[in-house]
Amino acid sequence: MKSKGIVVKRILFWVVTLLVLAGILFPLLWIYLTAFKSSNDIFAGTLQRQLIFTPTLENFKRLFVQFPFFRSMGNSLIISISSTVLVMVIALPAAYSFARWNTGGGHILFNTIASRMFPGAVAAIPFFLIYRALHLLDTHIGLILLFMYFNVSFATFLLYGFFRDVPVELEQAAMIDGYGRFAIFRKIVLPLVLPGIATTSVFCLIWSWNEFLYSFLFTRNAAKTITVLISSFWGSIEVQYGTMAAGAAISILPTLIAAWFMQRYIIRGLTFGAVKG
């Protein structure tokens, strides 16, 4: 009698688990299915034709030929990588200083998070106008600077957690051995926080890659990012789901790969280091 209850429980457990997984994965899978469908199949009214179809590459062909897809990818890459490098240049020393000397008694560090709560729309108007005056609209450098600002406080806070994990005694021992401050940082601290630096960089890269509001407002052609290009397929006169799906399929691939390989660090990153996961 009892074993029957356990079997029922186990079946229920797997039913719920598989349903949740299906719910999570289906929309992602859908992007890849739609990307390989002809537009006839996309707009087909029956379930069979939506699921069973002859795969075609026409969406990708249209995306590559008719739209500045590769240039947008390039723009997104340039902007994400440059802003991430800038973020790290600013955040690394600051986080080290906060972790090692508790600079500012913690107040400054915690106030940096407050800047993440700054509503996006507040900065949009002033920056739009000053960028227009400085001719920074539709340029890489404009977005690079903004994304640097968006990510720098997060990066500092996350790195702070990683630096805190490095025992101070290690540095003191090295200091007694006669190492200089920079040598200690480079030879002892840096190797130990390398996973932290990698995690933080990937997060900054992805958030810059995904950012939409500012990319959308501040770029037209020359610096148009991939998210903006994809958004333009929906809402134009003719809705191009196939092309949209093809673009989405390629552009979300790096984020999916990152999500899979950074499993251990995603929760730590998203909670600003509060939950080690």
């Binding site: 994965l25 992602l28 939409f212 984020t255 999916l256 990152a258 899979w260």
Partner: peptide
């Protein structure tokens, strides 16, 4: 299972909403 459920977290919200 734990790895798979994390997949949507890092995908651009804009793209997911269009989908």
């Amino acid at each position: 299972v734990r790895g798979l459920i994390l997949l949507p977290l890092l995908v651009a919200p804009l793209i997911l909403s269009i989908v």
